[in-house]
Design a protein around this nucleic acid. Sequence first.
DNA 1: GGCCAAGTAGTCAAGCTTGACTAGCCTCTA
DNA 2: TAGAGGCTAGTCAAGCTTGACTACTTGGCC
Lengths: 197, 197
Amino acid sequence: MSATKLLVLGIVHLSGGAHGYQVRSELQSWGAESWAKIKPGSIYHALKKAAADGLLTEHAEPGNSGPERVLYRATARGRDEMVELVRDGLRRTHDADMLNASIAMLPMLTRTDAIAQVNERVARLEAELVEQAKWREHPNRDAPEHVRDQAELWAGHARTELEWAKSLSKRLSEGAYTMADDPGSWRTVPGHLKMRF
Amino acid sequence: MSATKLLVLGIVHLSGGAHGYQVRSELQSWGAESWAKIKPGSIYHALKKAAADGLLTEHAEPGNSGPERVLYRATARGRDEMVELVRDGLRRTHDADMLNASIAMLPMLTRTDAIAQVNERVARLEAELVEQAKWREHPNRDAPEHVRDQAELWAGHARTELEWAKSLSKRLSEGAYTMADDPGSWRTVPGHLKMRF
DNA sequence: GGCCAAGTAGTCAAGCTTGACTAGCCTCTA
DNA sequence: TAGAGGCTAGTCAAGCTTGACTACTTGGCC
């Protein structure tokens, strides 16, 4: 699960530099503990790891008020890696956490790129549904009955996701959201103004 | 994620004693690596942990042909704990892995119990959908636009799951599947015959 | 003025998961 | 008949996640 990594990198990028607790609070205000199941401990770990990997830089800040804290800033490599993670998360099926995280970080992509990735997802879901329908005609004798039944649920989820992805693609085409290449995006608006989109 | 624990305990119970590789193969034949994302390493770990916790017993078997191996058998406490895990997984929303694992182990429950748990899930999903609809009328200004959009996807999944759970409940009421209290269940059929339901 | 609750900021050990690796046996084939 | 490849069976270190814990500050209330 690199959803944690994606979200943590994303918040640091969007806010133009942040310390651990800030990342934690921001994710909390997005309701991310519930849909991404991220606990505080993981956030601090992910920040340190990303810094060790050269995706973020660490600046120790003496606590002006309150305890000492560490400021993290994005590096160019970090941004590239994160954009790649978002693209991957949009395409990859069977990974709800990554999808959720990627949606949250959608405006990191340019509009055309985002549309391309979402369309790729649509294509994959359609292919998997075809595959699954085939499987249902020739069920595996080894798998018990209720395991086959479970496949039914998965197919339902896939159809829901398919409709949703199609409508997202459409909305993006119609100009919804402020994407990376739009005026007023996180790339063109200075630091502390970014967090309130 | 205790889905691993549930599946591992479940296979050992259903087969009436198994060694690690057997559990691994059985899960593989169910396609469990894909829907439960379980890797071999986790299986061996889960078996050892369960044995340490008194949920399984360990019997070293000298390898008659091939390497040495360890036989695991279920204990009474292990069965109780597993039944509780299945019930919990059926009720708990927001945890796809547990739900999948619980469905796979559905016949561990008695029919009336299973129906009760599934109905509880239905009730919870309905409540959450109401909650979510309320939230959509008064969206949180702090959360960016696409995060709200993501909620849309979740609602879609919830509706799919709701329909599915209702139909499962109905099928169970109509006598589908061989449950724990039915003749021919895993509780009444001797050991090595159990794996082919 | 003093004390408690809540907020800020983060550490740490323990536990689970992952991916790569070991090692013996069996079967087929050149 | 030697070797490759695959199946059986499992180990292990490294990495990620979790939950509990520390410590300091601020604000409010009696």
